[in-house]
Design a protein around this nucleic acid. Structure first.
Lengths: 173, 173, 173, 173
DNA sequence: GATGAATGAGTTTTCATTCAT
DNA sequence: AATGAATGAAAACTCATTCAT
């Protein structure tokens, strides 16, 4: 990956996350990245190719956050780590997640491939802890993660630290 | 509001919710609504005017759901009603909420005007129930509402009924 | 068909015939026709749609030349009329035929739909005149028509009148 | 001429003949030839330079077919050889002729330099055979050659062998 | 000789919007 | 109120060509 290629990628991520994918023209990306517009297409084929490259680029970094949880064995630690995940995302990954969350609303079918491994892990954890309905509990944790992440990414609340305490309390963690 | 005016409104809502506001051209709206392109502009001024009309149209219907909760006095009932809200949205209001949730990600500043009345009501309820941190608890309920609504609108999970049971259990409701 | 629509059609025909379809940009067509570029796409969908409209437009006029021959019954008259066809094309139809002849070379499969009716008519005529191989004779006439038309359209020769005499002599017409 | 240079030449010829010169981008040529985009320009200067190289390359091979006819002295043999020329073109020269015939339609002025020597030879031959109008007869043979060649190159007819018999019969050859 | 990143101008196409009818 | 022709600007994308390596 050349220097300009990477510049395009990070600039586009920034703009896509900020203004939205459809509202961001390739010419704006090129201008902001300081490259010719043609270069975007030479490197990424088309606008969607650029988006896919961004997704993959971010996914690789995201896997680093998710990874350790999937290796954990202690059920309580799994649940706690999962619920704390939204807080552990490094600030510089915010645009990536903002983009991903925004994009979800336009996808024709919902893609579970990213959440499924975690869901399974959580189901196992809740089962071990003798919860009555592990599937529903796992689902709820995923919902909470999404809700909290949304709240953080949109800077909706300032007291997220205390919110997290309330959450953890509900699971006696 | 004439018949065609209403047709434009509902068609645009459908398309905006489905494909996204920016990805939906006015000409597609006109074609899908079976009206001339010019009519949209005669009635709504411009594309943004159409969006605003949709927002207002939906907001009025949404107020009907929110209203009763704000009148309720029993704290437990308030919390329960709030948490159950995502399930009470009539299916035909789904596109409106999908659109609103999608739009949030592109707004420069987060608009709390819709959630604030409910937030206050919830804070009061949790205070009455002697929760240690009513603000954080209220915030958490709002996050849960958003999370569950998202899950339902995106048809992410099928067992939402059981998820709700798990949620209510956490509040001993 | 509006006035501007027709202007686009005739201007494009002129330019396509002159410079070639691929070498003529829609912006040049628009500029030469004195209309906005968008209008081309509103009326004809895309560049190929414009080309197809031109083809059909020309085909309708071409049918007027071909028609009488297909109604003729005297075999000698049929052959004579066919061979004289290239001379009977009104000058203002030249660009259309130039375009069609040029386009042939890029078509993936050869389209016989235009020549087939004439071919059949000629086969019948040669059969009636007891020629040994009516199919080959009909084919040869078609080849001659194409050859002579090409020569005329490209302004290759000045003595086409005498050439035609030589041709007719070969068929004792 | 290096191996890659030749590969570019033959690949470009193939594509130009198939899709047309204007419709074939240099990048497609490079990709199809398996060379870098820049190499075309290093070797041929620009796209037109590539086209000219192809023309010259083909012209040299074409001269080999035309040559013997121009040396012949027997008038009947000259005419027969000329008329049979389209059949004598080796199959692998087809793309070259397809390209040349297609290109004719976009040339501003018609270039007779290739046909003139043959035309003169034919005029002499017809004069020797006491034809009334040798110029027109020579022109007609050239037209026939073009017509038959076109028919063969576009694979329009399958019975070209019999067509040729019909042609030769007209000249009592 | 050969590569492939990079460019700027151009191409096809879409868009929101206007306006005469 | 309603149509649909028309537009100018901008969108996505392609192209021939250059140049550092």
């Amino acid at each position: 990956m050349t220097e300009k290629q990477e510049k395009i990628l990070t600039t586009a991520l920034q703009l896509f996350a900020d203004k939205g994918y459809d509202a961001t023209s390739t010419s704006k990306v090129a201008k902001a990245a300081g490259v010719s517009e043609g270069l975007i297409f030479r490197h990424f084929g088309n606008k969607e190719g650029l988006l896919n490259a961004i997704k993959q680029y971010g996914m690789e970094k995201a896997a680093l956050v998710m990874g350790p949880i999937l290796e954990e064995e202690d059920p309580k630690k799994i649940i706690k780590a999962a619920l704390e995940m939204p807080f552990c995302i490094p600030k510089n990954q915010d645009p990536f997640w903002k983009l991903l969350y925004a994009l979800k609303w336009q996808e024709d079918i919902y893609d579970n491939s990213m959440s499924d491994p975690l869901r399974h892990k959580l189901e196992g954890a809740f089962a071990k802890l003798k919860y009555k309905n592990p599937e529903a509990e796992a689902e709820l944790v995923l919902i909470l993660i999404d809700g909290v992440a949304t709240s953080i990414l949109l800077r909706k609340c300032e007291n997220s630290e205390q919110v997290m305490q309330s959450v953890l309390a509900k699971y006696e963690l």
